[in-house]
Computed example of a mutant assay.
Amino acid sequence: MFVVPKPLRLLAALLIVGTTSANEPIKLYMPDAPPLTLHHYVGGHGMVGDVVLTALARIGKLTHIVAEPWPRAQIRVAKGKDMLIIPLSRTPERENIYTWIAPIMELERAFFSLDEPVTSFAQARQRYRRVGVGMGTAQVGILQREGFSNEQIVQLKLGENPAHLLSLGRIDAWFTGIPEALYIWEASAYREQNLRQSPSLASTGLYLACSRDCDAQLVEQLRNAINQLEHEGVSLLLRQAYLPLQPDP
């Protein structure tokens, strides 16, 4: 699928000033991770996806969105050339294997459960036997650094429904980005249950990144385009369109 941002949001469409390039489309690796990135949604491509695709259009680039399992996508981009990837958390383990183009947003993370919420990693480590996290996500490393055992960390593959697993008691809690949890829960069959959220316990910047071997001109053009979108307030408006309702504390 070759994609240029569609006029799904009038504001974004009016502010796209680039023209489509006849050059080879740039590969953009992104998972279907609502509401951050979306593949098949009538309203757009998500909080991070809309910003990045708008920036690419502004510099006149066609984009080929590539959907692969998230761990494989990260390896392929890191070892490739001029490949883009979103939404990638800038963590110590990843720092030297990618070219970091620009931050798109800050992602706050919390524990979600159906019982009284925890208030710290130490409390969660003691209370929860099984914590669901997305496979290959920064959440895995965060929990490992906080002393959670491999037995406590349940890595969920793309397509496994954490809301369903939480409702059935197959995981005790779900540790993920706050927008993702609220978006998925609201769209699930279990939304009538009282989802409880801990305070935000970790935060990392979500970046547009490129292969370590990445064209310097492309990096500079995209960095400038994303900075312009942020300065103009366009990025904020695009992200806010996906913000879900907040649960009870």
Rank of each mutant, 00 (worst) to 15 (best):
R223I: 04
T91S: 14
G147S: 12
I59E: 05
V3Q: 07
E232Q: 14
H45N: 13
D215A: 10
M30G: 06
A22Q: 04
A22G: 10
L36P: 00
D82K: 05
N227L: 15
R125G: 06
N96L: 14
I26R: 07
P25C: 08
I226D: 01
P117L: 04
E24C: 11
R76F: 02
T63Y: 00
G177F: 02
Y207F: 14
G134N: 02
A73N: 04
I178M: 05
H39N: 13
L229N: 09
I75L: 13
A55G: 12
A73S: 13
P103D: 07
G46S: 09
E151S: 13
E180K: 08
D215R: 03
Q228V: 11
L158G: 11
L56Q: 01
T176G: 09
I16K: 08
N227S: 15
T176Q: 10
A202R: 03
N227V: 10
H231C: 11
Y128K: 03
P199C: 11
S21F: 00
K157T: 12
D215P: 06
R223A: 14
A124T: 04
L38D: 00
A209W: 00
H39V: 08
W174M: 04
Q228Y: 03
A110N: 05
E160Q: 11
G136L: 06
D32M: 07
P34S: 12
Y207M: 07
Q152H: 03
D82W: 01
V140K: 02
H231F: 10
L14R: 15
I171W: 00
A102G: 07
H231D: 13
G205A: 15
Q217K: 12
V17R: 15
Q197L: 09
P199A: 12
A110V: 03
L243T: 15
L158S: 12
Y98D: 01
P71M: 03
Q126S: 14
A216Q: 12
A110G: 10
R125D: 02
N194R: 09
D215H: 08
P34V: 08
I26P: 03
A209H: 00
P249E: 05
A102T: 04
D82G: 12
V133Y: 00
E108R: 13
T204Q: 14
Y98G: 07
P92E: 09
